[in-house]
Design a protein around this nucleic acid. Structure first.
Length: 430
RNA sequence: GCAGAGGUGGCAGAGUGGUCGAAUGCGCACGACUCGAAAUCGUGUUACGUAGGAAUACGUACGGAGGUUCGAAUCCUCUCCUCUGCGCCA
């Protein structure tokens, strides 16, 4: 959600932003918002005046009662009652206008950064820097499920029986590798000065509707039956929700947190859930990072965050690149976003393993996350950012493909060996 | 899960239908005293919305949602949370 003052003062900028995002259909909303806003303020001041009268009358009645002037008090009561009818009328009108206004405001996207490439959809995203050159394999790299099965590392058949499609059993060294990657990623971020956090894996409905739109909620979130609780789709939900409605002391910023959680997603309507394997699944685990900082620092943190992910993948000898999200592919809350993509030797292309976003104050405004600015003495909205450190089931695909040897064994890079009990290789089962 | 107690400003904590946006204390800011500091004294100090250049004015908010009333922090209903005891349990 953007600042309504911006729409009031500079509607052209907002309209221009809509054009950049190929959302011309929303342009009439801007004028509608201006009208609704003016109407709301008129109603509010009318209501304020009426309430002021009510308060004055109530005071008057109080003193009349004390002086035992009952007849006059009754007269004032009648006046007040009539006044209250007007108030009720104005209030319901005002509530209606406010609701429409809020709905419109919610669909106005965040103003995007100047350097976001202009493009219609994900086909126009722009490649950024590459890190590590992809090495040619002298043999054909099999599908990841086949690699996993050879290592006795996966059981999809049983998972389908117990839980359905989109679930998995990881077993043996592969399961250990999965945990090792998470632990390594956790320590990696702690070494960067981030605070480790294990958040709740379920959150209430009001937190959910704070962190995402209704459509997203429908398509992603699993609800616990009979309770006002949802399984989180990413730890960002509970990590950001933690600061809902709070005013943070300036000296505590930036908050740099790294969190672990399982993630649950319906993936309703998403392509590929039927695809065999662990690319798109209902349940996975993820190490995440979030930053809450002062507005002037969010550009700095954005660059830092995605580069941390790159550094982690490079330390595990997996070639990656940055893919810059173009204007049309950018979610409405985002100011700027990019994916970190890993090289797939099998597909001979890069695929998404993480996503980094700067939401500026759009998310914070929606959730009421503020900080006390000591310079101005005012409470101002903070900026929020989030980024994937690593999400192992998917990253495992990149890991296995890149470290696979012709005999079916998989090398473990040095950085990870101590988390694997000193193993240097995973060997296929007999 | 059951029973009891409670949720009020940055914090602690009064207030049980009108003069309460809220005593008092702490904290914080400024000033006086002082060579300087401590102590002391004085003044100020909730947030949000609207109008205004500002001073300010008006409105809203005492966990949340409804209700009663001319008027609610205060009464009623529901709900959430916290604490204590009991029960249950990794």
């Amino acid at each position: 959600m953007i600042d309504i003052a911006l729409i009031r003062e500079n509607p052209e900028l907002v309209k221009n932003n809509l054009k950049k995002k190929f959302q011309e259909r929303k342009i009439p909303l801007v004028d509608e918002i201006c009208e609704l806003d003016a109407k709301k303020r008129a109603l509010q001041s009318e209501g304020d005046n009426l309430r002021s009268t009510r308060n004055a009358l109530a005071k008057e009645i109080g003193s009349l009662m004390r002086e035992k002037k009952f007849a006059e008090a009754e007269e004032a009561k009648a006046k007040s009652k009539a006044n209250n009818d007007r108030i009720a009328q104005i209030e319901s009108e005002c509530a209606e206008v406010e609701e429409r206004l809020k709905k419109d405001m919610m669909s106005i996207p965040n103003i995007i950064a100047d350097d976001v490439p202009i493009g219609k959809d994900d086909s126009e995203n722009v490649e950024g820097k590459r890190f590590l050159e992809p090495a040619e394999k002298p043999f054909e790299v099999p599908y990841h499920v086949d690699i996993l099965e050879k290592l006795a590392g996966i059981d999809l058949d049983s998972a389908r029986r117990t839980s359905g499609n989109g679930f998995y059993y990881l077993t043996g060294d592969v399961a250990r590798l999965h945990s090792a990657i998470l632990t390594y990623a956790r320590d990696f971020m702690i070494d960067k000065g981030f605070t480790y956090c294990i958040p709740p894996f379920m959150i209430r409905g009001d937190v959910v509707s704070g962190v995402m739109s209704f459509e997203e909620m429908e398509g992603m979130m699993y609800k616990i039956e009979g309770e006002d609780l949802y399984l989180i789709g990413t730890s960002e939900h509970s990590m950001i929700g933690r600061f809902m409605g709070s005013v943070l002391p300036e000296e505590k910023l930036p908050l740099t947190l790294t969190s672990y959680s399982p993630c649950f997603r319906k993936e309703k309507g998403a392509h590929g859930i039927e695809e065999r394997g662990i690319y798109r699944i209902h349940q996975f685990e993820k190490q995440e990072m979030i930053v809450i900082c002062k507005p002037e620092e969010s550009d700095y943190w954005y660059e830092k965050l995605w580069n941390y992910t790159v550094e982690l993948f490079v330390s595990l000898k997996i070639p990656v690149r940055q893919l810059i999200c173009c204007s049309g592919d950018l979610a409405d809350l985002k100011y700027k976003s990019c994916d970190v993509e890993a090289w797939s030797p099998r597909q001979k292309k890069y695929f998404e393993v993480g996503s980094c976003s700067n939401l500026t104050d759009a998310q914070a405004r929606r959730l009421g996350i503020r900080y006390r600015n000591s310079r101005t003495g005012k409470n101002e909205y903070a900026h929020t950012l989030n980024n994937t450190v690593v999400a192992p089931p998917r990253m495992l695909i990149a890991f296995l493909e890149n470290h696979l040897n012709e005999d079916g064994s998989v090398d473990i890079p040095e950085a990870l060996q101590k988390y694997m009990g000193g193993k240097t290789k995973i060997i296929p089962a007999k």
